[in-house]
Design a protein around this nucleic acid. Structure first.
Length: 374
RNA sequence: GGAAGAAUAGCGAAGUGGCCAAACGCAGCUGACUGUAAAUCAGUUCCCAACGGGUUCGGUGGUUCAAAUCCGCCUUCUUCCA
């Protein structure tokens, strides 16, 4: 496919951070990028117009969840995900590999695939690498993931080794099954905390020649330094000219760490989920808006933020909305958190182009870690 | 004027002789959340120099080894009858 490629415009002189455009069938987007998650074909609380306003490019949707509701055939009949959800930017679908982890007690893995007892009514649903691809083709995202096993942490070496071998076989099967020319299928690097397995998995995937590579099995409860090591054990084996996507990572320090190691794409439910729960990312650290200290605070959430929420509303008002469980509050806070991360990426991109990424990282973390981080 | 019933922690509400500093819900205060089973989950909320101690269940006086729980009186509220 020639309408999907990475256009690298600059590499930071003092790190592996890269800047450029990712070209997709639904337009080009700058990287490094943060991709908001819209599991059920909606980024919870935000309209497509609001997503544009906060600067979102790629957004995610989920194969497992959409295949259960409304069902991939409905989305297909609607004209695909873009039309169905009225989003004309690039969309990425996760394969269901994360649900192998998050719904661990409701599934069984075999060589053939994964059988889920779904979380809605317990009905069995079988996912093979081929079925995942078939569903993803019907959903019609620009970027799709092969079915993998997101392995729990910690896992012993033997388990991880077998799992990586199987994930590699699944990647191959998915690739063979994938027919749509207008979708980029990514392979996923697993291997947990084991350096040799990460390397092996990356190298084997590269042999299969995917248009992009994901790093999975991160941010599932492992310590930060372990996560950082997982990244460093993966990126060196991935081709320079293909996008690297660190899955499920959305904490500020981890994003900065990933960018430094040459990661181009990040996604995470963190900003939207914690926003709904009243926790906000600000340039000076974490804010729990429900806290009493904001009761009479008539200043913006983050004076350095240019989002609709920060430009128009005070902490006292946001606290009030939160405590009254008004949905507008959750929307405003979600808008802020997503804008915060996307704005962070904008600043990162600027810093990379000016070869001062490392200084930027240090300064940003210094301010951010003054209070509680994530 | 008479009759019946009720008063429990910020609110609602269990408990009706010892296992009660008192269930539970709400409100309050605080944490957590990372390819979304999440508008969720967890902790905490009488006072204190606190792995112990001190005061509580409308008020007051009793009964009892022991009372939120039983008895007398008082106060307030609700309903019904006049």
């Amino acid at each position: 496919m020639n309408n999907f490629y990475l256009e690298i415009l600059h590499v930071d002189k003092h790190s592996k951070a890269r800047y450029g455009y990712l070209h997709t069938p639904h337009g080009k987007v700058e990287f490094p990028m943060f991709m908001p998650v819209g599991t059920l074909a909606t980024v919870k609380g935000l309209s497509p117009e609001e997503l544009k306003e906060v600067g979102a490019g790629v957004i995610l949707a989920n194969t497992y969840h959409l295949s259960l509701r409304p069902g991939e055939d409905i989305v297909y009949k609607a004209g695909g995900l873009h039309k169905f959800m009225n989003y004309d930017g690039p969309i990425l679908t996760d394969s269901g590999g994360f649900q192998v982890f998050s719904l661990a007690e409701k599934r069984k893995i075999t060589e053939e695939g994964v059988t889920f007892k779904n979380h809605l009514n317990g009905a069995k649903r079988f996912f093979s690498p081929e079925i995942a691809i078939e569903i993803e083709e019907k959903l019609g995202a620009d970027i799709i993931m092969s079915l993998d096993e997101c392995v729990h942490y910690p896992a012993d070496y033997e388990y991880m080794k077998n799992s990586v071998e199987r994930t590699l076989r699944w990647a191959k099967r998915g690739k063979d099954a994938h027919k749509r020319e207008d979708q980029a299928l990514f392979g996923i690097v697993q291997g947990g905390e084991f350096a040799d397995l990460r390397k092996y998995c990356a190298e084997e995937l590269v042999k299969m020649d995917f248009p992009g590579y994901s790093i999975g099995g991160t941010s599932i409860g492992e310590p930060k330094d372990v996560m950082f090591q997982m990244i460093r054990n993966s990126t060196p084996y991935l081709p320079f000219d293909k996008p690297r996507y660190l899955m499920g990572v959305g904490s500020v320090d981890a994003i900065l760490e990933g960018v430094q190691e040459g990661v181009d794409m990040f996604d995470c439910v963190l900003p939207t989920r914690i926003a709904r729960h009243g926790a906000l990312m600000t340039s000076t650290g974490r804010v729990n808006i429900r806290d009493k200290q904001y009761e009479e605070d008539f200043t913006p959430l983050d004076s350095n933020c240019d989002c609709y929420c920060c430009k128009n509303y005070t902490k006292a008002y946001l606290r009030h909305l939160y405590k009254c469980e008004e949905m507008f509050g959750k929307r405003l806070l979600s808008i802020h958190n997503i804008r915060f991360l996307i704005h962070l990426m904008e600043e990162i991109r600027k810093a990379i182009q000016e070869d001062r990424f490392l200084e930027f990282k240090e300064e940003f973390l210094k301010k951010f870690n003054n209070s509680k981080g994530f």
